[in-house]
Design a protein around this nucleic acid. Structure first.
Length: 228
DNA sequence: CTCACGACCTGGAGGC
DNA sequence: TGCCTCCAGGTCGTGA
């Protein structure tokens, strides 16, 4: 192993002299590291890597939606280029976001979940960013004006940087390689708060389902209509 | 091409 | 206690 990095929702492990191990945790996957001989407490181990001096790296996944793939650097590159920009990187700009939104009639929440448009945004952070930008999750992407696109850009950057700072969001299963849970769940502004007061206006948060998953929004702060 | 929807899996929570 | 239904952090294939 030479290095470990992240691209979108993939943990990218660079092997030498050529080769990539790409791990996608799916919804319940965990990549757990156990030092030399430490007993490996795993619930649903799927892949075990035996490393130097008795330490192990174990991919554990209850729902088996996660994947571990081995490929060449070239194969990884062809996949990499199909992914959208990293929202916390310099090549993600309000202009680029605005251009992407303008080309699509998808609901905003669906658009944000599409890894080809923006990389690494999941359902929780899509909902959070839309709340910060005061945009309705089902509003068509191409109806967003420049000012709102800027707000969504800032919302994405703020949400993701805060969440990274706190080690991510653990609703139930997620832990990092040392077994630590993410601490961002208690900082969520709208996700999972159905019926609870909006943090801006106190009106109750509404849950809806489209695209097969839950969306949360404040009907007052995030109106569906384009006007207002 | 874009978009909506179902499928893939398992287990925890809550209702009766 | 047990059975049933609903729900879940993601991604991919199909078909309109």
């Amino acid at each position: 192993m030479v290095s470990v990095r992240r691209r979108a929702k993939n943990i990218v492990i660079q092997l030498a002299p050529d080769g990539i191990l790409a791990v996608n945790l799916g919804m319940t996957g965990r990549l757990l590291y156990f030092r030399n001989g430490r007993s490996a407490r795993t619930s649903h181990p799927a892949v075990r890597f035996h490393l130097d001096q008795g330490s192990r790296l174990i991919f554990d996944d209850v729902r088996r939606f996660g994947t571990v793939e081995c490929m060449t650097d070239a194969e990884w590159s062809t996949r990499d280029v199909r992914l959208g920009p990293e929202p916390l990187s310099d090549d993600f700009t309000p202009d680029r976001l605005m251009d992407g939104l303008a080309r699509s009639r998808s609901p905003l929440r669906s658009w944000l979940l599409d890894q080809r448009k923006v990389a690494g945004v999941g359902n929780i952070y899509a909902n959070e960013a839309l709340f910060l930008a005061e945009l309705h999750p089902q509003r068509s992407a191409n109806t967003v004006d420049r000012a709102r696109a800027e707000a969504l850009y800032q919302g994405l950057r703020l949400t993701l940087s805060e969440a990274v700072e706190l080690g991510g969001t653990t609703l139930r299963d997620y832990v990092d390689s040392e077994g630590r849970r993410g601490q961002y769940a208690s900082n969520l502004r709208v996700y999972g708060r159905e019926g609870l007061p909006c943090l801006r206006c106190q009106d109750p948060v509404v849950r809806s389902v489209f695209g097969g998953r839950s969306a949360f929004h404040c009907p007052s702060c995030q109106p569906r209509s384009v006007s207002t």
